[in-house]
Design a protein around this nucleic acid. Sequence first.
DNA 1: TCTCATTTCTCTACAGTGTAAAGAATCTCT
DNA 2: AGAGATTCTTTACACTGTAGAGAAATGAGA
Lengths: 110, 110
Amino acid sequence: MKKTYLGEFEEVVLTMVGVIGEGAYGNRIVEEVEKQLNRSVNLSAVHITLYRLEDKGLVSSDMGGVTSSRGGRRKRFFKITNPGLAMLKDLQEQRTKLWKLIPGMNSSAL
Amino acid sequence: MKKTYLGEFEEVVLTMVGVIGEGAYGNRIVEEVEKQLNRSVNLSAVHITLYRLEDKGLVSSDMGGVTSSRGGRRKRFFKITNPGLAMLKDLQEQRTKLWKLIPGMNSSAL
DNA sequence: TCTCATTTCTCTACAGTGTAAAGAATCTCT
DNA sequence: AGAGATTCTTTACACTGTAGAGAAATGAGA
């Protein structure tokens, strides 16, 4: 649990963990980012970012069971914490407020 | 004009330039950030960020006239460009879409 | 006009974040 | 037990966040 500041990609990953809900882990998050944002990302970029989020207390993790149908290392599952959700809400509130003050921004898009 | 990626503080500054509209310059932006986000920022942090935004073509700048009532160096005024506004719109659209997918997020806050 | 105080911009520096690549660990199947 | 598959972990470096020092330009007063 370090600073409370959140970088751009950290916010993306945190958001995806929230969107996925149960069963969020490395490759699943990569797929979700590519599907939702149409943006290619690296698996280890996601992992290192998840660790940083965990250091900040915004996500928590535990190792999954040995239920894999196919071979491979055990998955580490992540889920968003209450502070993590609160941070997303703060960002949401902050931005919606500001967007309404910018001429040329379409408020009805909200 | 370099990459198109936008960091967290870069987005804040870009947004403020959009909010202020006419007459956005260093100290004015500092004040606006502290007022809107209740967050203390350094003047040179704002400046270096403005230059990076200008490199990316998201804001443009020109020097102000000699109309200062009190002494001091001339101001450099910044304004948001069309690509800059388009980027904010993209971010807005992207996030509102994702927020609606997260259980526990209040969509009515939008 | 010269110096001073004021205001703002510019440069330098370093920690934090974004991203990729290489490698280690652990599982299933034969 | 060995081979292949899948995922996690470590290492590394460019980009972004932030602060501090200092240079430049303007108005006021001696």
